[in-house]
Nucleic acid binder design. Sequence first.
DNA 1: AATTTCTTTTGACTTAAATCAAAAAAACGA
DNA 2: TCGTTTTTTTGATTTAAGTCAAAAGAAATT
Lengths: 186, 186
Amino acid sequence: MQELIKFINQYSNLSESSVVALEQRVVFESYEKNEIVLRQGDRANKVWFIKKGLLRKFYYNNGKEITTWIHAENEMFTSMHSYFQQKPSQETIQAIEDSELISLSYEKSVELNQYPEFNSFSQELLTKQFSAIDEFSKRFSLMSASEKYNALIEIAPEIIKRAKLGYIASILGISQETLSRIRSKK
Amino acid sequence: MQELIKFINQYSNLSESSVVALEQRVVFESYEKNEIVLRQGDRANKVWFIKKGLLRKFYYNNGKEITTWIHAENEMFTSMHSYFQQKPSQETIQAIEDSELISLSYEKSVELNQYPEFNSFSQELLTKQFSAIDEFSKRFSLMSASEKYNALIEIAPEIIKRAKLGYIASILGISQETLSRIRSKK
DNA sequence: AATTTCTTTTGACTTAAATCAAAAAAACGA
DNA sequence: TCGTTTTTTTGATTTAAGTCAAAAGAAATT
């Protein structure tokens, strides 16, 4: 729980009363490896914070799973468009290691918006996360396969260390075989 | 001005008093073809609405201009990450036709946030625009050159009609020659 | 510990699109 | 209107990465 508070404080400074308000509203959840946290088509009515574990976001394209990102400890995640617009999610979120999460529902987060600290936190989180996605997709679209791989090592070493080859290749938009060859030469 | 109000009303319903408050704060601006509206490195301290004209967003990569999008009449634009985080812009915005714009500064928009209608408008605009960018980049990254071109015809016919080949190719992340060949066969 | 299943590697071949170069067409300015 | 500059088209060639197929290696299940 301290990790979550620390995370939020990066964006906005929580008062003692707002910390209490937060603690009263969060829920602890556990998922086993391969369990689905959010299914495509369902509404993302929560945001989650990762205490422990690894979570994968993906969607289907012609029956194939396309992994878009993998989140690790001390990160927050949700299906952004689904949560902020309260519409069905395009993406599925799956635990790819046994995971322990702290969740906050949309309704409770609306309650917390009475506290201006939370208001600015969610605005900033929204902006930063989307900016990051935007920048990531623009930067990566101009790189070769191995440049993308090297850039991912820099920005997300946890993914490289813990996720399997196929998922990493999918994030980079390259084939498994190509990633395997990139790794073998060096 | 009615066009702008109509635009905002798509997201949120403006009261009469908030319309007046808005009218008192906007500024009309004109740009000639090729003029720069926002320069890379400068802070985007405005959002603009297009009454007339065509505006191009681009950034530099290895000295080459990469066009990310082109906006036409009745759309709002700004450098999203720069405006919402009030940081220097990565992208440059340029008029590529003689253009007439209505602008609202960041400071004035903060004033308008006293009106809850504007608050929900800017939150929704932020969410929708970023969701659109996100979806666009994900969908397009899996398509072939000609599939991307056909998809762009669907979602942005104005760009296809009015922007030059090189800009369109750049948005699609393909070479000019490839786009020219796609067009010639059909 | 053995068998089955899943994941990664390696090889051979194909292909979509990039690059380089030059010609043709269109737009612009004096 | 003519010459200059910009933009688009066409042709020839190269290349990065995909696909298909099979082997090797690792992990999970009984």
